[in-house]
Deep mutational scan, measured.
Amino acid sequence: MQRVNMIMAESPGLITICLLGYLLSAECTVFLDHENANKILNRPKRYNSGKLEEFVQGNLERECMEEKCSFEEAREVFENTERTTEFWKQYVDGDQCESNPCLNGGSCKDDINSYECWCPFGFEGKNCELDVTCNIKNGRCEQFCKNSADNKVVCSCTEGYRLAENQKSCEPAVPFPCGRVSVSQTSKLTRAETVFPDVDYVNSTEAETILDNITQSTQSFNDFTRVVGGEDAKPGQFPWQVVLNGKVDAFCGGSIVNEKWIVTAAHCVETGVKITVVAGEHNIEETEHTEQKRNVIRIIPHHNYNAAINKYNHDIALLELDEPLVLNSYVTPICIADKEYTNIFLKFGSGYVSGWGRVFHKGRSALVLQYLRVPLVDRATCLRSTKFTIYNNMFCAGFHEGGRDSCQGDSGGPHVTEVEGTSFLTGIISWGEECAMKGKYGIYTKVSRYVNWIKEKTKLT
């Protein structure tokens, strides 16, 4: 034993070699072989497995989906700052455009905790909710729209109204504003409101030439003092309507412009014939205590009207009353817009006519005020429907199939267009061939041609 100890002390290297040989010859039971080890760690190889990531292109799944990435790591994937920024906006807080917040056709661009709407022409605001041009839906104005110097929408209202708090709607500024039905039992019968379409306001006024200088022999019209197929109006439903009495009662109609003036057809009036105007009328054979009678003290036909040349060209006249009318729910003026808007309103496509005229061709006159909704007829169809001249200051309205029309005794009465609950004068009943005849239409004086003249002559002093 002493000898062994001496050998170990003198030859430590020998001992180490012996131990190493023993270990190498022993069977290893701690580690699995290569094949079995792979069965336990069965993990798919990654895209760049075996390579240094710093030297390969980034992978979106590896960089940002398996674990949260930084902007720089995302930049490695896209290799483009702009594309990385677009991805980053949604990656950080989701897609803010998912709810489609942009209105009126706006395009949404996502941002971090926010979004941006790219608005089409005519709109602005956070969600493109603000109209900035009158060309689109009248700028959301209830009545009139004008573009300011910086191309912003400025709404306005006709006389007797003021802008509401929203700067879009119009509200009454006087007790009985024009064009409004205020009798409670008839307010439910107000005709369907007309909503502004998209309009090209630059070209809204037709490029028409008034044929002022045409000389033409007097034409022989049949029954051209021209509501057939209409309905009984309720008291106060058309408070701007008046009836004219002269040699015979209810020979023509008219509309209240203001307390002192009536507008009617020029062919209705004769110099030297006494005319009485009755406002607030409903049943011409009954006294309903809503009527107001006034005498006409002055007749002003349009300066281009000449019955000797043509009885229905420039067929418009103004009547001055001896005493002002007292405005109330049964006696209310009709609204008159400017030339541009009167023309736009007419193009809405349908209007209402009213009167006490004959209820059928050569038949009896109506006792109760009649009204009828009539569609506008395109000019080409209008011209083809008659052998008589249709001037540019006239328009056609009615039904091709016949059966409904204005008729004798309705002449001078109103053709009105309702705009968001307020009625505007767009025409004056003038003439036609018979009444409600198939293929024939009622012919009306186009008020847009005469609004400046009306307003100039009827100013209240």
Score class of each variant (00 low, 15 high):
193 E>L: 12
149 A>K: 13
436 A>H: 11
375 P>V: 06
293 K>E: 10
176 F>R: 05
412 G>E: 03
457 K>P: 02
274 K>G: 11
222 N>L: 11
277 V>A: 06
180 R>F: 04
440 K>N: 15
213 N>F: 06
299 I>N: 04
414 P>I: 13
163 L>G: 02
337 A>C: 02
151 N>H: 12
173 A>L: 11
346 L>Q: 09
450 Y>T: 01
34 H>G: 07
193 E>N: 11
137 K>C: 04
380 A>P: 10
312 Y>Q: 06
438 K>N: 07
42 N>K: 09
457 K>W: 07
245 N>L: 07
26 A>E: 02
27 E>T: 10
287 T>L: 14
167 Q>R: 08
19 L>F: 13
273 V>N: 12
421 G>Y: 04
384 R>E: 11
284 I>H: 06
411 S>L: 13
281 E>H: 13
91 Y>D: 07
290 T>M: 08
280 G>Y: 02
84 T>D: 09
305 Y>P: 02
316 I>Y: 00
172 P>H: 05
391 Y>C: 10
47 Y>R: 06
107 S>A: 08
204 S>G: 11
264 T>V: 05
293 K>F: 13
445 T>C: 03
159 E>S: 09
245 N>M: 06
242 V>I: 05
236 G>D: 03
381 T>C: 05
104 N>M: 02
430 S>V: 13
258 N>K: 02
377 V>Q: 08
229 G>Q: 12
317 A>H: 00
439 G>Y: 06
34 H>C: 04
85 T>V: 08
94 G>H: 12
385 S>D: 14
92 V>K: 15
212 D>M: 08
281 E>G: 12
330 Y>T: 02
259 E>M: 05
334 I>R: 00
188 K>Y: 14
283 N>G: 07
76 E>A: 04
147 N>L: 14
289 H>K: 13
65 M>A: 14
422 T>Y: 04
60 L>Y: 09
57 Q>N: 13
46 R>V: 12
378 D>P: 11
397 A>W: 02
136 I>H: 10
430 S>Y: 02
2 Q>T: 06
390 I>M: 07
394 M>R: 03
71 F>S: 11
287 T>A: 15
53 E>W: 06
426 T>Q: 00
249 D>G: 12
175 P>T: 09
200 D>F: 11
54 E>D: 11
5 N>G: 15
93 D>N: 11
158 T>N: 05
428 I>S: 01
312 Y>R: 10
399 F>Y: 14
433 E>N: 14
259 E>W: 03
121 F>H: 10
73 E>C: 03
417 T>W: 00
252 C>V: 01
415 H>W: 02
252 C>R: 00
239 P>W: 01
157 C>Q: 00
343 N>M: 05
350 S>G: 09
341 Y>S: 10
438 K>Q: 15
350 S>F: 12
28 C>E: 03
194 T>H: 14
233 A>R: 05
395 F>H: 01
25 S>T: 13
135 N>P: 05
22 Y>L: 06
435 C>E: 03
83 R>P: 12
134 C>A: 03
37 A>F: 08
15 I>G: 04
454 I>D: 00
141 C>G: 00
210 I>C: 08
414 P>F: 10
245 N>C: 04
369 L>I: 06
226 R>G: 13
344 I>L: 15
65 M>F: 12
32 L>F: 07
235 P>L: 08
135 N>Y: 06
27 E>F: 03
426 T>M: 00
235 P>V: 07
422 T>P: 00
113 N>I: 06
81 T>Q: 15
202 V>K: 13
149 A>E: 14
446 K>P: 03
123 F>L: 04
211 L>D: 14
366 A>T: 15
407 C>D: 03
94 G>I: 11
269 V>Y: 04
422 T>D: 01
370 Q>L: 03
279 A>K: 01
118 W>A: 02
380 A>G: 12
332 T>F: 03
342 T>V: 03
376 L>D: 01
153 V>G: 08
196 F>D: 12
30 V>M: 13
276 T>D: 06
160 G>T: 09
250 A>Q: 11
140 R>Q: 14
75 R>G: 15
388 F>S: 11
337 A>E: 01
106 G>H: 01
366 A>V: 06
80 N>W: 04
77 V>R: 13
36 N>W: 05
312 Y>E: 02
305 Y>H: 05
388 F>K: 14
140 R>E: 14
164 A>M: 11
280 G>V: 02
88 W>G: 15
97 C>W: 01
10 E>H: 12
264 T>R: 00
99 S>C: 14
46 R>T: 13
157 C>D: 01
155 C>P: 00
34 H>D: 11
264 T>I: 03
152 K>Q: 10
383 L>P: 03
158 T>S: 07
19 L>V: 07
265 A>P: 04
290 T>I: 06
338 D>V: 03
26 A>W: 02
142 E>R: 04
161 Y>F: 10
142 E>D: 13
254 G>L: 00
267 H>R: 06
279 A>P: 00
170 C>T: 01
159 E>A: 10
223 D>C: 05
